[in-house]
Design a protein around this nucleic acid. Structure first.
Lengths: 111, 111
DNA sequence: CAGCATCCGCTCCGATACTG
DNA sequence: CAGTATCGGAGCGGATGCTG
């Protein structure tokens, strides 16, 4: 993510690079409802590969979007949740969802 | 773009797949201002490769987001513009831009 | 002017198998 | 339970060169 000419544009693309992945949006939408353990995330997003899910979560963690808390009291469990920064991205998620609903309502595809 | 479990989620991901590419957002932001010829787009987004730009525009055209009008009166010129459907995506662009501005204002990166 | 052809490296994503 | 390791296919994006 380097020079793109316009620094403002660069920031937008930086934002997009965080949420632009296929499953990242799904993760954000899922965690929007409530924090979750890895296993719950897997069940909430069943088509996503465990490997993919892990790598997306790592990336989001690195970007400061989600927090990862390991609690090992007896049973091991890792809790993922949105950070305050992550919540700032939710308007984008909502905007996407709004368009998706709009699509669903009006017709199938733009065709 | 196939099954993902939740059809609603599938639609969101479909939307994202249209605008999730690196330069697509830049194209949308640029065409938001006004329609443009290929050459103008290139100058507006100088860091984007011509090949990349073409391929993104083709994809957007296929998705019904931009229209491509060839006018060959003497000088050849191709005009790209947002379609009505393309304009429906602008709220997402704005949401991304808002977050980007927010980032710029508060600090550099979430680090 | 508005592209297309080709080659390349990179990352995403999936499937399978294995671990503390 | 929460991952990691590895393999493989596909698409993005850049660079260069060529065309009507």
């Amino acid at each position: 993510m380097e020079e793109v000419g316009d620094p403002r544009l660069a920031r937008c693309m930086q934002v997009l690079s965080v949420i632009g992945d296929l499953w990242t949006l799904a993760i954000l939408m899922t965690l929007q409802a409530s924090e979750m353990r890895f296993n719950e995330l897997q069940r909430a997003i069943p088509r996503a590969n465990a490997v993919t899910l892990t790598s997306r979560l790592r990336k989001l963690e690195d970007a400061g979007v989600v927090s990862r808390t390991v609690e090992s009291r007896g049973k091991q469990s890792t809790v993922y949740a949105l950070t305050p920064f992550g919540r700032r991205l939710l308007p984008i998620v909502d905007a996407v969802r709004a368009v998706a609903l709009d699509l669903e309502r009006s017709d199938e595809a733009p065709s």
